[in-house]
Design a binder for these strands. Structure first.
Lengths: 225, 225
DNA sequence: TGACAAGAAATTTTCGATAATTCTTGCGCG
DNA sequence: CGCGCAAGAATTATCGAAAATTTCTTGTCA
């Protein structure tokens, strides 16, 4: 909420706002986006809105078709399965590489980010940008940080976002998310113990959980009015 | 060259043009991009150019800083190493998954795309969009197509582009690229024979080659005037 | 009834100009 | 001689309207 206001450009702050609203489901999936509507809402001209939407489409949060405008990216069980699969595959290999090559600094950051995550209260009122989500992201990033490719870590981060969107949608539909803490602890422990197979199995199970939770909710192919 | 002109939007066709120029090195890395210059060159206003640049920045081909404009993404040995590493890791896991789960259709496409690649002449005059690059991309995509996540395949495709940029730059600097054909054949053969370890090793070696070629060229940290 | 075309309305894309910000240059001062 | 600073130049971000295109509506004809 800091740089959205001060030196940032209008397009940037609109981007941030819209991003949170899409992630948290305030903007319903598969909904057409009305340029004029957004312009009036933010009280700006087309340019900055357009720019923000362009950036969002690069993160697959909105889809764009030439001369036919933008729409909020749809959700589906198929896509969630695809995302989950991609997460399992990429996180597996990145985690293995990290465990194999990570040094003391890496291990320390894993520990630190885990404890931060424990201490962060789970405030899901402003979902998209909650403290907890931030801490959650940091933990998952820390696990992979020593894999040897910043690009790969960045990609896993993108997948985290994609999954987070589903998680938040499930949450607002009344899903319960048990105690992620103990799962995170187990993952953390196996990782610093350098038990690669175990850590990978736990991590993938952690990802699968989101998918399982949303399975029933998304079954009828998710049609909103 | 087809849809760049007809139904596409101005922004889209400028995007395509600029993309090719960046990939092929016509637009020098780490160069500041002058909005007005581009506007005059394409004879359009700011909006479409800005939009094109926004889309390019989502592919990491240009970098953007608020109120400070755009510049062509720099190149460096470090980044190439990062990309190569990411490619090896992601392609390894995706190829293993494909080999484990691919069906007859997948196998067929691997074969077909390989033969197309053989038959395509290596015309590097219009580098960014050459037939050969297209065929090359298709082959590498086919290898991974059965991994179970379209998203992951799409990401590998992005990495392909990132690496292609370096390849083309190396090419224009007088690099020679031996016979990739025989490498591709070996990869193809090992893949359809379902020899995962061998296929992965060959594929990673294939990626490493680009990096090795450019090592010397990029050593002095690539400063252009 | 249903397909289809013409025109109207709404929307997206692009334009040209303005406001806001950053970069540059040159001057004075320590 | 170098450093900070202010005025001017250059550049980016945003605006509001015009042009181009798609979508919706309605009326006609088989």
């Amino acid at each position: 909420m800091n740089k959205s206001e001060s030196t940032a450009t209008l397009a940037s702050s609109i981007f941030t706002t819209l991003r949170e609203e899409i992630l948290s489901g305030v903007l319903r999936p598969d909904t057409k986006i009305n340029l004029r509507g957004l312009c009036e809402r933010f009280d700006v001209a087309f340019s900055p809105v357009r720019e923000a939407l362009n950036r969002l489409s690069s993160q697959n949060l909105v889809s764009q078709t030439d001369r036919r405008g933008f729409k909020v990216a749809p959700i589906s069980l198929e896509e969630l399965s695809d995302i989950t699969r991609a997460r399992c595959l990429t996180n597996e290999i990145a985690l293995r590489a990290s465990i194999a090559e990570g040094d003391a600094d890496w291990e320390e950051e894993v520990l630190v980010s885990f404890h931060r995550l424990l201490r962060t209260p789970r405030d899901d009122r402003s979902p998209g940008a909650s403290e907890w989500t931030q801490a959650h992201r940091r933990f998952h990033t820390a696990l992979l940080a020593a894999c040897g490719s910043d690009r790969l870590v960045a990609y896993c981060d993108q997948l985290f976002d994609a999954a987070e969107r589903y998680r938040l949608i499930g949450l607002s539909a009344g899903g319960n998310w048990g105690d992620a803490d103990s799962e995170h602890r187990a993952i953390m422990q196996a990782t610093v113990d350098r038990k690669a197979d175990e850590a990978v199995a736990l991590l993938c199970a952690h990802f699968e959980k989101t998918r399982a939770q949303l399975r029933t909710l998304l079954q009828p192919s998710a049609r909103g009015p």
